[in-house]
Nucleic acid binder design. Structure first.
Length: 271
DNA sequence: CAACGGACCTGCCTGC
DNA sequence: TGCAGGCAGGTCCGTT
């Protein structure tokens, strides 16, 4: 479900609750998420003062005075703020219970999410160490994309979704950014000119910041920590618009599977 | 190496 | 109405 804008929306929603609060205890009801939740998370966070929430790619870094827990929402995960003691539902896998009487509750039907312990240097955690630059960082640019793509034959759509290339690009926004930049999703990554990659880097930043501004994209069930949907779905140009007309040229939007993921594009505008 | 496919798990929608 | 099959916003890992 969540890509970078949805994770960022979640971060903004939970940060005011978390920052400056103290965790009373961590309640784990289902330890077997994508990886088992390490007991160290509960032990370290119980009684700890929380400093804030940061984001790296689609990971949420829950920073405490004793170290950082690393949360990922997977495909179907979400956080919500509940009153402590609220009866959990079947897919409510863990709660961070704060001393003020509220709890941060993690819900995830598919259990692709995770909660891990990152210690004092979470960015060195195995899952984070090799991530590419954040799209809004100075390091991320057309030149970076060009350099990383040299000699590679993989479809640019798949290339964009590789965590080591750029942090946080998912299936929706990869299609959207390629449409904005006029690049065909099947084009070999190594056969794209620098100037086109510059347009693509710009398109990526634009579409992600507009989506964050709109509170993310809700296709079926994404909601922020207060349960509100995101409004970017109505501004998608291609994703989930198979058969509808291109907003630019009017031809029919196509759907095609690239690297096992549904991809949407305009065959006339994207070359 | 790069590229690909399978794996993890549940819910929802479609078509027979 | 029931059921099988396909599909879903992620991404790691083992195999070519």
């Amino acid at each position: 479900m969540p890509e970078l804008p949805e994770v960022e929306t979640t971060r903004r929603g939970i940060a005011p609750l978390v920052a400056g609060a103290r965790i009373e205890r961590v309640v784990v009801r289902e330890r077997r998420l994508r990886w088992p939740i390490p007991r160290q998370v509960e032990h370290a966070l119980a009684g700890a003062a929380m400093l804030g929430v940061r984001r790296r790619a689609k990971y949420l870094l829950l920073e405490s005075e004793r170290g950082t827990a690393i949360a990922h929402l997977g495909m179907s995960g979400s956080f919500s703020v509940v009153a402590a003691g609220t009866e959990p539902d079947v897919h409510d896998h863990y709660d961070l219970v704060f001393d003020g009487g509220t709890a941060l509750r993690f819900t995830d039907p598919r259990k692709f999410g995770s909660l891990l312990w990152g210690g004092r240097e979470p960015l060195r955690h195995k899952l984070l160490a090799d991530l590419g630059p954040e799209p809004f960082s100075a390091e991320f640019s057309g030149a970076w994309l060009k350099e990383r793509s040299l000699g590679r034959r993989v479809a640019v759509k798949s290339f964009l979704m590789m965590p080591a290339v750029v942090a946080g690009m998912g299936n929706i926004y990869a299609s959207e950014a390629l449409y904005r930049a006029g690049i065909h999703p099947r084009r070999a990554a190594g056969r794209i000119a620098l100037s086109r990659y510059e347009a693509l880097a710009r398109a990526i930043r634009d579409v992600l910041s507009e989506a964050i501004e709109a509170g993310g994209t809700t296709l079926r069930d994404f909601a922020d920590a207060r349960g509100r949907p995101g409004y970017f779905a109505q501004r998608l140009d291609v994703y989930d618009r198979e058969g509808q007309s291109c907003r630019r040229c009017g031809s029919s939007i196509r759907r095609s599977v690239i690297g096992q993921r549904a991809s949407y594009y305009c065959a006339r505008c994207q070359t």
